[in-house]
């Protein structure tokens, strides 16, 4: 396993995976979208709004899983100093944030016809909103330092602190939600509970697969960007260390 901790070796593997992930992504979306929009039945209670589920649920699952990946990568980075882990965490964060935001907005669009309002302070929605804030904090902290490595380390610590807090946040939000159930909002009937029929599982799983393939594709591309950033920085540093070369280059320009 240690072999893959070397960024060069890992990136060779990642670049080999890339065309497959991209191909799978295109293929799965090509199957999932017609299935989700056309070939699957409407829910007997929710009608066609259930089709929002096919893009909402995978976004929610990936939003959560990417944070988990980020936290695991951050722990690996802080404990074993694997530069690769820092790359993964940094590259994954913005994608996870967008998944979480997508989950929230599609949730609102689903909530309006089903609950009669765009937003309820439902435990799951509230937790996802706080997760989005955690992502935003992580991204802001990572970009706030002149020194790249300092930003990576600070963000890694924050990701770990956040991952310890997530269960506590979920617990307190659920507790808070049951406390105020009566006074805030009465959900009509089962809320967003869908009795998932087998015909709905096919679009849901293909969509899920498409999301994962998309995530992997973008992750590899973003890791390339991060590696290039590091290389550019190093090149700049060596240039600054050899002012002769720098002046010559400036003259040549």
């Amino acid at each position: 396993m240690h072999k893959y901790a070397n960024p060069t070796v890992f990136m060779r593997l990642a670049n080999a995976v890339l065309p497959w992930a991209a191909g799978a992504c295109v293929l799965l979306f090509a199957v999932a979208i017609p299935l989700a929009l056309y070939a699957s039945p409407a829910d007997y209670q929710q009608g066609d709004t259930v089709r929002i589920m096919y893009i909402h649920v995978p976004a929610a699952i990936l939003g959560e899983m990417v944070y988990g990946l980020m936290a695991a990568a951050s722990a690996t980075y802080l404990i074993w100093r694997h530069q690769l882990a820092a790359l993964i965490a940094r590259a994954a964060a913005p994608i996870g944030a967008i998944f979480t935001a997508l989950c929230l907005i599609t949730g609102m669009l689903w909530g309006q016809p089903m609950w009669g309002t765009f937003w309820v302070w439902d435990a799951r929605l509230t937790s996802m909103l706080l997760l989005l804030f955690l992502y935003v904090g992580y991204l802001a902290l990572g970009d706030a330092f002149e020194d790249q490595e300092r930003g990576e380390k600070a963000a890694a610590v924050l990701a770990l602190v956040g991952s310890v807090n997530i269960p506590i946040i979920i617990f307190s939000v659920e507790w808070w939600n049951t406390l105020h159930q009566g006074s805030i909002f009465k959900m009509n009937g089962e809320g967003m509970k869908v009795t998932v029929s087998p015909e709905m599982l096919a679009p849901l799983f293909t969509m899920m697969g498409a999301y994962v393939a998309f995530f992997v594709t973008i992750l590899v591309l973003r890791m390339r960007i991060e590696i290039l950033n590091a290389k550019i920085r190093n090149a700049r540093i060596t240039q600054a260390a050899a002012p002769m070369v720098a002046t010559q280059a400036a003259q040549a320009r």
């Binding site: 979208i33 066609d48 929002i52 976004a59 599609t106 016809p113």
Partner: peptide, 15 residues
Amino acid sequence: MGGYAQYVWPSYALA
């Protein structure tokens, strides 16, 4: 979309 076009299509467009 069974009368829910204004919710379903924006969701997909947004995605």
